[in-house]
Amino acid sequence: MSLTQLRDTLASVSDAVPVPVPDAAAFERRVTGVRRRRATARVAGAVAAVAVAGGSLLTLGGAGQQRLPVAPKTTASDVPVVVGGHLRTVSGDDGVLGPVGPAVASIVGATPQGVVVLTEDGTLGRVVDGDLDQVVPGRVRTAFLDGVAVVYEDDAGQIRWRQIEPTVATSDSAQTEQGRLMAAGGDVAVVAVVATDDHRGLVAHDADGVHPLSLSTTVTVVTGVDVAGGIVAVRTDQGVQFIESGGTNLTELPGRAVGSLAPDGGLYAEVARSGHDVTLIDPRAGVPSPGPELSSGTIRQVGWTADGDLLLVVDNTLWRCVGVSQCRPQVTVTGALRLH
C-alpha cells in the first residue's frame, strides 16, 4: 500500500463519518464560557505561580546546563522558606518558624497536600508531615506548579506534565520540544528553545498554541522568567521585558535582574539597584511606582504569596506586605534565608 492509499483511506473515512447536527445550545454555552474566561484573564488572572529571581543564567544561543531558578508558590497564610538549606514554614498568623524539614535545593510551591520541593540530587518530591514523598521518577532539572499539575523538565531535557492533585498520577506525558523549561503557571509554560534550526529564543505554550516571545535585539542573556495572569516577565541583561503569553510585546524597562511578578500578573516588584527600595511596575502600562519603604537593610529577594501579599527577604528577615504597603517583619532567622 502506498501513501496514496493512506490518503485514500483518510479521505474515505472523512467522507464516511456521519456528521451530527450542531448543538446550538451547547455552542452558546461554550461561547459564553470563552468570553468569561477571556474577561477573567484580562482583569485578574487565576494563577498563583510566583517566581523569584535567582542567580542562574541562561545564555541565548548557548547550550548551558545550569540549574534554573524555580518558582515558589505559597498558600494564603503560611510561607514555605529555605533556612540553612532546610525547608521550614513561616506561619502567616504569628510569624512562627515551623520545625526543621528535609534538606532541599529549592521550593517549587505549596499544595493542599504539602510543599513541593526539589532536592540537590534532582528529586522532585512533596513534603508531607516532614517526610519527602517523590512525585515523579528520576532526576528533575526544573519544576513549577500549574494548577493541579506539576510541570517539570526531566534529566533528559523533556518537559512533562504530571497531575499531583488531589493525588499523584501514575503517568505523565511529554512534549517533544527541545528546550529548557523557564517558567510555568496558569496553563502557560515558557520554554527557551535552544536546539532547533528554525527557532531560537523563548516560546510560550498555552491552550491557543505555541507563541514565540520576541526579545529586544540587544538581549544576550535571560536571567529569569515569571509567568502569571497571561503575562510573561523576562529578566535579561538589559532589564525586564513584559510580553503577553500570546506573544504581544507590552513594555520594556531597564533595571536590575531581581524582581517578581504578582500571582495575577498585575504588578511586577523590582528591587532597586541600591537594594533598599522596591519599585512596583504595571506590566501593561510600564509605569513604575514607589513600593513600600523599609527603614534599613538590604533586600535580597522578593516574591509574593498566592493571595497577593508582597514578600521581601531583608538580610535575614522575612517581611510580609499586605496590599503591597503595610509591611511588617515576620521572622528573623540565623543562617541563609531563601524564598525558593
Binding site: 499539575a149 506534565w161 497531575q163 498520577a169 506525558s173 496553563d187 505554550h205 491557543d208
Partner: peptide, 13 residues
C-alpha cells in the same frame, strides 16, 4: 492547538 494542549497534559492523554 487544543489537541496540543491535551497531549501535553498527562491527565488528558
Amino acid at each position: 492547538h487544543q489537541l496540543a494542549g491535551r497531549w501535553r497534559r498527562p491527565f488528558r492523554e
